[in-house]
């Protein structure tokens, strides 16, 4: 178990905002943390655990850059308070690689140039992983629709779809 504390300066009056104790299971490892109760799941991951894969594009639940999986389902972590996720299993982009081997979607995004600045990419990939699990990657129309919560301001949408299609058809081929 790893312990992470919110830094407070010596002699500092403690915040009127109560701290909370929370254990987040991130990418398979438990982290016990003491956090300002206002800390979002996104900020807990980024600022407190140093997992900066998940990105902040709006902090308002409207861009998808902060998408992570909680118990296998995608959520926008900027709209989630860390305190609500005590004991839950969280997967971030950093947790996708399997022993250094990238996830097929990570490779497909590279192959299809499914990004430009790359800032939306962690969220896009996590959403795409979830899409497959949700059974919504079967048709182009589904991919379009159910990837529409992830904004790409660089406009890589066609290549994002191509990358997802590629992985889905690979998976289908493999299962035949």
């Amino acid at each position: 178990m790893k312990h992470v504390d919110t830094p407070t300066r010596p002699g500092e009056a403690t915040s009127e905002i109560p701290d909370v104790e929370v254990t987040l299971n991130v990418n398979g490892d438990p982290y016990r943390m003491r956090l300002d109760s206002r800390v979002t799941l996104l900020d807990a991951l980024r600022d407190h655990l140093g997992l900066t894969g998940a990105k902040k594009g709006c902090d308002q639940g409207a861009c998808g850059a902060c998408t992570v999986l909680v118990d296998g389902k995608r959520i926008v972590s900027c709209l989630a308070l860390a305190a609500q996720y005590d004991g839950r299993e969280i997967t971030t982009l950093e947790g996708l690689t399997d022993d250094g081997e990238p996830h097929p979607l990570q490779k497909a995004f590279a192959r299809h140039d499914a990004f430009q600045c790359g800032y939306c990419t962690p969220g896009q990939i996590m959403s795409a992983v979830s899409l497959q699990a949700e059974g919504r990657a079967g048709t182009d129309a589904d991919i379009c629709e159910f990837m529409s919560g992830n904004i790409c301001r660089c406009g890589a949408y066609p290549n994002i779809r191509a990358a997802i299609r590629d992985v889905v058809s690979e998976a289908n081929d493999a299962s035949v």
């Binding site: 980024r46 990570q106 990004f115 790359g118």
Partner: peptide
């Protein structure tokens, strides 16, 4: 050719200013 920084950008290892 694929972007040389693609491995970084697809794994969260590309560090943007707020990282």
């Amino acid at each position: 050719v694929d972007r040389v920084d693609a491995p970084l950008k697809t794994t969260g290892a590309a560090h943007y200013p707020n990282d």
